[in-house]
């Protein structure tokens, strides 16, 4: 079983003070945390280092969080994305889930709840990967791909 410290989390939010403080709190909870401050930076980041879970704001300068989520799911569908927004509507929540978002939280969120969701997202990712590998080993590559993309 992996230790908590090995869960790689990327925080994406244009509120620098918010994201830096939250990063410190998550690090104190044994998570590996990196921060970026807009959608473009997030997409460049995941091309170099792949996080397990991304905590993503919606309203940011430039690319909107929903566009970032769509791009992430195209580039690396297995990365789990939790939306953390101060301004989300029910429609946004529905759209985020439709695009493959793992969960939708509103700011300010309880830190213990956020950590629990990050871990939950991580373990779901691992489970999905293991199931996909099992199918791939059986030669069922399409099924394996669908599992990773949550298309089953």
């Amino acid at each position: 079983m992996k230790k908590k410290k090995e869960i790689k989390v990327l925080l994406v939010d244009d509120e620098v003070d918010f994201v830096d403080t939250l990063a410190q709190r998550l690090k104190m909870r044994e998570l590996m945390v990196a921060t970026v401050y807009d959608g473009e930076q997030a997409l460049s980041f995941i091309k170099k280092i792949e996080p397990d879970v991304i905590v993503l704001d919606l309203k940011m300068p430039g690319l909107h969080g929903m566009e970032v989520l769509r791009e992430i799911k195209q580039l690396s569908p297995h990365i789990q994305v939790i939306i953390l927004t101060g301004h989300g509507t029910e429609k946004d929540e529905e759209e985020a889930k439709r695009l493959g978002g793992f969960d939708f939280l509103r700011k300010p969120a309880d830190i213990d709840l956020l950590v629990a969701k990050i871990k939950e997202a991580y373990w779901e990712k691992i489970e999905r990967a293991m199931t996909a590998i099992a199918f791939a080993e059986e030669g069922e590559l399409d099924t394996a791909r669908k599992i990773i993309k949550k298309e089953e």
Binding site: E15, D17, F18, T21, L22, Q24, R25, M28, K59, G86, H87, K107, P108, I111
Partner: peptide
């Protein structure tokens, strides 16, 4: 709606900051 978004962001920062002091 713009204003409440802005306000909520500042409150979220305050909440995390207070939480961080508690953690430390």
């Amino acid at each position: 709606s713009v204003f409440t978004h802005e306000l909520n962001n500042h409150l979220a920062i305050m909440k995390e900051s207070i939480g961080l002091i508690g953690d430390i």
